[in-house]
Write a protein that binds this DNA or RNA. Structure first.
Length: 658
DNA sequence: GCGATCAGAT
DNA sequence: CACATCTGATCGC
């Protein structure tokens, strides 16, 4: 649960995901997604007054979030001021805001703010698979990640306990096969998905419905009225075999063999109900590795399911971004801020810089940019023209350097070499690291294995033991008596592409999935007017023009933007392969300890093509160094040592024409 | 009486 | 086992 106060150190005149107290003086509001813990104060009359009292103060969010917000009577009166299109906000300050898909729930986005106080990423809540950040072109300038000053990070599962959480596809497939095997027994066999009242399960509903041809019964669906891709897979007709309806006492209902909607029999025949409860923490607490589906009772199951990135996914994300600073938005259950910082800081430049005394001599040659962004100026920021006194980077200037250029390259030097002594490292990232951190072929071999073993994380590999027997995903004979051996193997068939975050009414934009758009939606908060239509045009084409390292990157970005699990996209065979490949890589790297994987990973080995490594390297290299010239030789430590020695002695260094 | 806040349940 | 929400009690305006 978010405990973010609403304001960024760098841009305190903006408020994000908090709308109460001090935030009432903000000059622009941002909502990352429609979960209550990110909407504090959003209903209050104080905010309403604030928004209505100024033509300039607006609330910004993704189109889907706007739709979900405004179809909720609790909020719809408040916000005539909800904007998904850019409007000039500040007369004197240019801040460019980019929306990136967060993969958390429909409409969820991360916000990237670029302005004179540096580039700052606020993640909101997110779930991004390993490597996904590296494939987001809007996080990059050319082939390198943007220079990011600070990341405000979703740290919900920033705890080694949650080192590995099975991927979206794995979880989905587990549930799918369980539901398939049960519902195929007879029309009276029904499933109750015991989901929390919150957005985020829609892709599960969609996939079940698509695969099985059974719509999901829900209490309400009017909020999806403009999202046909969701709408067509849910129903308010109780006569269906999959239910995700709720009732205040729904557990009691279930115990009484009654669905929350009241259904208990059909044509006089009593229903056979099983419940499946999506959970993450429950799995995180298992000491022994488990299947993604665990039977917990006669007719109750737990299914692994996560809205948030696992610890290793968080680390991959952060390592790729490599910001100067990181600030946790969430305290993991039972965790402390200190603990989280201890885990995360090694992945940041501010830490790495301090960790390399051996390069001090060189370091002194470099310009160190210290910026005091502390709270010192907080007080005056809200009231008066917070920006008037500040040096301004002209808009032109910025535009010349391209829409994705950061305004602050200076910190880039900060992290040169260091070797990343970082902790419990995982798998393939270490490959990257060893390549990146050439100066020091690390005596310190990745210790992921020890880490991995002492935790529970091998659960996935164990899945291999459990799952296959259960027909890939809980469909096993052993699981329930009526079932006679559903033996089909799990497979992804025509997984449908887009997550239903499409809003048809936004037709003028003609886009497909929301996520894609939200990703395209770069909002310029600028003194220069630009009309909305023009803008959205610009941003779409604009971002397409940003050079992308690999075509596949773009593809999977689109995919990802619809916050659907990668690999499920019908759009790109190549895309899928790419994802599978990276999975295989992970698998290898984790040396068999991990990863279960049913299906998806069992793709032909052909997919494990060598080019992948190249791709990954270039995309995820952590960028503050100049990328290695192809064919260049990595300098060896002793060689380097020599060079440094000479340098320190003031001798000139002659380059050998290798 | 409304809203904010907290504890507790689900 | 807890990802987010709703309910009810309490307090202040």
């Amino acid at each position: 649960m978010s405990r973010f106060g609403g304001r960024l150190r760098e841009y305190p005149a903006l408020s994000i995901d908090r709308f109460d107290r001090d935030n009432l003086r903000a000059r622009a509001y941002f909502l990352s997604h429609c979960h209550k813990d990110h909407m504090k104060g959003l209903r209050a009359s104080a905010l309403k007054r604030r928004l209505e009292g100024s033509l300039k103060v607006k609330l910004y969010c993704s189109p889907v979030t706007k739709e979900l917000l405004l179809t909720n009577w609790k909020y719809n009166s408040t916000h005539c001021s909800v904007k998904i299109t850019p409007t000039p906000l500040f007369q004197k300050e240019d801040i460019e805001v980019t929306l990136l898909p967060a993969g958390h729930c429909p409409g969820s986005v991360m916000f990237l703010f670029q302005g004179e106080n540096g580039t700052v990423l606020y993640t909101g809540d997110f779930r991004l698979a390993k490597g996904e950040a590296a494939r987001m072109e809007l996080l990059h300038s050319g082939t390198r990640v943007k220079d990011i000053q600070s990341v405000y990070l979703d740290t919900t599962f920033c705890d080694p306990k949650f080192y590995h959480i099975p991927s979206r596809e794995e979880c989905l497939n587990g549930i799918l096969e369980l539901v398939r095997s049960w519902t195929s027994l007879s029309r009276y066999h029904v499933v109750w998905l015991n989901c929390k009242a919150a957005y985020g399960y829609e892709y599960l509903f969609i996939n079940l419905s698509e695969e099985l041809g059974i719509k999901v019964h829900v209490n309400k669906l009017d909020m999806f009225r403009n999202m046909p891709e969701i709408l067509c897979h849910v129903t308010t007709d109780r006569h269906t075999q999959i239910h995700a309806c709720r009732h205040p006492r729904d557990d009691d209902c279930f115990r009484g063999n009654r669905l929350p909607c009241g259904m208990t029999c059909q044509n006089g025949t009593p229903l056979r109900i099983i419940s499946i409860k999506p959970s993450t923490m429950w799995f995180g607490e298992r000491i022994k590795k488990t299947n993604v589906i665990v039977r917990t009772g006669e007719s109750t199951y737990r299914a692994c399911f996560s809205f948030h990135s696992s610890f290793s996914e968080i680390k991959d994300f952060l390592r790729h971004i490599c910001p100067v600073n990181v600030y946790p938005n969430v305290l993991p259950v039972g965790g402390t801020e200190d603990k989280v910082m201890e885990l995360l800081q090694p992945l940041c430049r501010s830490y790495r810089r301090n960790q390399e005394p051996r390069y001090k001599p060189l370091g002194t040659l470099k310009r160190v940019h210290k910026r005091d962004l502390s709270d010192t100026d907080e007080d005056d920021l809200f009231d008066t023209e917070l920006t008037s006194a500040r040096p301004k980077i002209s808009k032109q200037q910025r535009e010349e350097s391209g829409p994705s250029e950061t305004t602050q390259p200076e910190n880039a030097e900060g992290n040169e070499s260091n070797d990343d002594d970082d902790d419990d490292d995982d798998d393939e990232e270490d490959k990257e690291d060893t390549e990146k951190n050439t100066q020091e072929p690390k005596a310190d071999v990745p210790r992921w294995d020890t880490f991995f073993k002492c935790d529970r994380l091998d659960e996935s590999s164990e899945n291999e033991d459990n799952f296959p027997s259960s027909a890939g995903a809980g469909g096993s004979q052993s699981l329930f008596s009526d079932s006679d051996g559903v033996s089909d193997s799990t497979h992804i068939s025509s997984q449908n592409s887009s997550q239903s975050t499409h809003i048809s009414e936004q037709g003028s934009q003609g886009w497909g999935s929301q996520g894609w758009d939200s990703q395209m939606d770069t909002v310029l908060i600028t003194s220069q007017e630009r009309n909305a239509a023009e803008f959205s045009c610009f941003s779409r084409t604009g971002s397409r023009m940003i050079p992308v390292p690999h075509e596949a990157a773009k593809e999977s970005q689109a995919d990802n933007s619809s916050w659907k699990a990668p690999g499920q996209n019908r759009s790109g065979a190549s895309d899928v392969i790419c994802d599978l490949k990276s999975k295989d890589l992970e698998k290898e790297a984790e040396a068999g300890t991990a990863h279960v994987q049913e299906v998806l990973v069992e793709t032909p080995d052909a997919s494990r093509a060598p080019d992948l490594e190249l791709k990954r390297d270039s995309q995820s290299s952590s960028d503050f160094e100049i990328p290695l010239t192809p064919d260049a030789e990595l300098p060896q430590p002793d060689k380097l040592y020599c060079l440094y020695k000479k340098l320190a002695a003031g001798e000139s260094i002659v380059r050998k024409p290798s």
